[in-house]
């Protein structure tokens, strides 16, 4: 489903953020990316749909392949349409209601009719438990509610892969649960997801695979049991100790 080959990203002249990343994510796999701050987790995720342009490497999502060394805008646009991003700070349109936020992509990108878009939006809002808030503007919703609308909006574009960039890090602790529950529901429906998160326990319960990143590289890659329960990488052990304690 997702194939990354020799992906590198350098900011400026000498700030190397990603170093020769190779990754393969299968269909219906839920991959959690863990790691300390500044190790390139979010950058990797953003490179996957070219929100952030890689310096080199090849990315394939679904049947679209983009080579950083020779790509066209059309290829990037097609690649972007294979995935949908859930942002850390929700990024909802402030002037639109929950329903309108979800409908926007359906109307403008997928060019669905208003009635069809509305029907899909209501179904997705129901799925994330926000149907009763469908006419609420973001300013009248809690962070958790906004994030759930953000997830519904990402699902609306009906892409192959859902990308979550620290979806709970901007939330108050008491609101984290509702978002994680929503993501868990999606995982149980066999959606292909890649999540950057600091929620180790959540990753342990939901992910089918966990990747630990360090210094712009994948330092460990395995099942949740291998990575979280029995870490053999000393840096990973220190990280898990720090997070869990």
């Amino acid at each position: 489903m997702v194939e990354v080959q020799h992906l590198s990203k350098t900011f400026g002249a000498d700030t190397v953020v990603l170093k020769d990343i190779n990754l393969h994510v299968k269909k219906n796999e839920v991959v959690a990316i863990l790691g300390p701050s500044g190790t390139g987790k979010s950058t990797l995720l953003r490179c996957l749909n070219y929100l952030c342009e890689p310096t080199s490497g090849i990315i394939r999502v679904g049947n679209v392949t983009v080579d950083a060394s020779k790509h066209t805008r059309r290829e990037v646009r097609n690649l972007r349409r294979q995935s949908a991003m859930v942002f850390q700070n929700y990024n909802l349109f402030k002037n639109k209601t929950a329903k309108q936020n979800v409908m926007e992509a359906l109307l403008t990108v997928q060019k669905k009719s208003r009635s069809e878009a509305e029907e899909i939006a209501l179904k997705l809002l129901d799925k994330v438990g926000m149907l009763d808030r469908k006419d609420f503007y973001p300013s009248k919703m809690s962070g958790g509610q906004q994030q759930r609308v953000g997830i519904a909006r990402a699902m609306a574009v009906n892409s192959d892969v859902l990308l979550f960039d620290e979806p709970t890090s901007a939330l108050d602790p008491e609101l984290v649960g509702e978002v994680l529950n929503t993501i868990k529901t999606l995982a149980e429906e066999n959606a292909t997801m890649i999540l950057v998160t600091h929620e180790v326990r959540f990753a342990r319960n939901v992910a089918s695979r966990v990747i630990f990143m360090e210094d712009g590289q994948i330092a460990a890659d395995g099942t949740p049991e291998e990575i979280i329960d029995h870490p053999d990488n000393p840096r990973l052990q220190r990280f898990l100790n720090f997070i869990t304690n």
């Binding site: 749909n49 929100l51 805008r73 646009r77 972007r80 349409r81 949908a84 991003m85 990024n91 349109f93 926007e104 992509a105 403008t108 990108v109 909006r153 574009v157």
Partner: peptide, 13 residues
Amino acid sequence: REFGILAALGIHG
């Protein structure tokens, strides 16, 4: 940010 989200949703530059 609004333009960015629209682009991220797949709208042409």
